[in-house]
Amino acid sequence: ADDATGIPTDTTLVFTFDETVYSATGDITIHRSDNGTVVEAIPATSGQVTGSGTATITVNPTVELLTAGAGDTQLLAAGTNYYINIDPGAFQDSLGNAYAGIANTTSLNFTSADPGAPQLLSTTPADDATGIPTDTNIVLVFDEPVYPATGEVTIYRSDDGTVVEAIPVTGGQVTGDGTTTITVNPTVGLFTAGAGDTQLLAAGTSYYVNVTPGAFQDSLGNPYAGITNSTSLNFTSADPGAPLLVSSTPADDATGVAVNTDLVFTFDEPVYPATGEITIHRSEDETVVGTTAVTSWRV
């Protein structure tokens, strides 16, 4: 209705006439009240307009109009004032009598609803999830489109609170600006399991995620409250099990191997020296040719 407030951004426009009308020639145009910018001009004969031949005409703005947008005049933003114009003659009755239309800024205007501060609906990984692959992206799903502002998404180790990585929300590792889904891509280094290395997302380790309050905001500048504790979003990465030897140099059964060839062992995941030795035997009698501790400088 004229001067209505709190209108959802996905509301369709409905016009009720005193008699049956038919679509003719002209547009239904949505303007921003603050500057008169045209948000969308919808031809009366288009598929977005239904009800021709009845007394009730329904206008469906495009999908884009259903999404709140920050600083984008092509989106029906939450908490914004709009007015509607209808071209004279855009509708007419069965005798060809034309509807006079609406050509001013005051006859039909409304204010879209402000949904309030963005709310976090779900995350990947989910809170308390276990067995999470170390190459998993962090995905935050909100109840309305959000935009990066100022702050970071920070990954911590749960055991000692060490910062694994602090990711600025305005950096290239954060995508989804202007949508309800924000994806955070930790650095390549985080995709590698690491033992005793606070800069690596180690396998079989517990982590928690914090988001700076105000790091994201909606189209009206309402800030997301953030996550500032160690319990709201925590997870445990997967332990892939014992390392497996994928290949070696020299390869098994290789011949003609140069006497100065280094031994190279390739595993299916990063490995770290622990306790033990690498021993070379003569095949004919199993005599030990050489022994090297895995913690020595030679390894």
Rank of each mutant, 00 (worst) to 15 (best):
T124H: 11
S230R: 09
G196S: 00
P243Q: 09
I86R: 00
D135M: 02
I227D: 06
F15N: 05
P243D: 07
V146N: 03
S219D: 15
A55Q: 13
Y156F: 14
G116Y: 05
D253N: 13
E40M: 13
S46D: 08
I278C: 00
T180M: 09
S283F: 07
F15R: 01
S230L: 09
N97I: 14
E64R: 14
T249L: 12
Q48I: 11
P273N: 07
S33N: 13
A1K: 12
Y22V: 07
V169Q: 04
R298N: 14
Y272Q: 00
P213N: 06
D218L: 07
L13G: 03
T291S: 11
G89A: 02
T287G: 13
E40G: 10
Q74H: 14
G241R: 04
I138P: 03
V209F: 04
T205A: 12
D93R: 14
P88A: 15
S107V: 10
V49Q: 04
A78W: 07
A149G: 08
G171T: 05
L108S: 07
G71H: 00
T162Y: 03
Y147G: 01
N97R: 13
A4H: 01
L201Q: 06
S52D: 08
P240S: 07
F267P: 05
T25Y: 13
H31F: 14
T50H: 06
N81P: 12
I28M: 00
S296W: 01
T54D: 04
T180A: 15
L76I: 15
N210Y: 04
A126Q: 10
R32Q: 14
D3K: 14
A215M: 05
A55F: 08
V299D: 01
L95V: 12
A4Y: 01
T205H: 04
I7S: 06
G116L: 00
I167R: 07
V184Y: 03
Q119T: 15
P240C: 06
A78T: 14
V146I: 08
F267N: 11
T255Q: 04
N185R: 09
A258R: 08
T181V: 15
D143F: 04
T124N: 13
G256N: 12
N222C: 01
S46M: 05
S52K: 02
Q74V: 09
D159T: 11
P61I: 10
